[in-house]
Amino acid sequence: MKSIEDLKKIREETLKNINLRKEDNDHAVRVVVGMATCGIAAGARPVLAACLEEVRVRNLADVAVTQTGCIGVCRLEPIVEVFTPGQEKVTYVKMTPEKARRVIAEHVVNRQVVSEYTIGAAE
């Protein structure tokens, strides 16, 4: 059974590792998931969960996963935007958890845009 005690353990572990982590925000990548009504209805919640899981399992300390409201193209939801330093924003459309995992592996980690999922390929 899970308990509040687990959180105290998480706290200790986090404090132990905090010195090992360099706060290098210039290299930070941002993954933004559209979570307005149209996004949620189209399946944004499991897409967000997949992004969070990949970031956690791969221990990607310099990747921030955030949420935003309506991106404006409801028929292409779920939408995920990836911001990498020195690169233009890439907008991925009609996302699924599987596609999101691939975007994390190929784009966020290896900096290779997954062209077939981008808004350019869908239009």
Partner: peptide
């Protein structure tokens, strides 16, 4: 509010906390 107290400054959005 209870989680925050146990975490003592560790953010709620930490991956391990969200999983918990």
């Amino acid at each position: 509010r209870v989680l925050r107290e146990a975490l003592g400054g560790i953010p709620l959005e930490s991956p391990d906390v969200l999983l918990w």
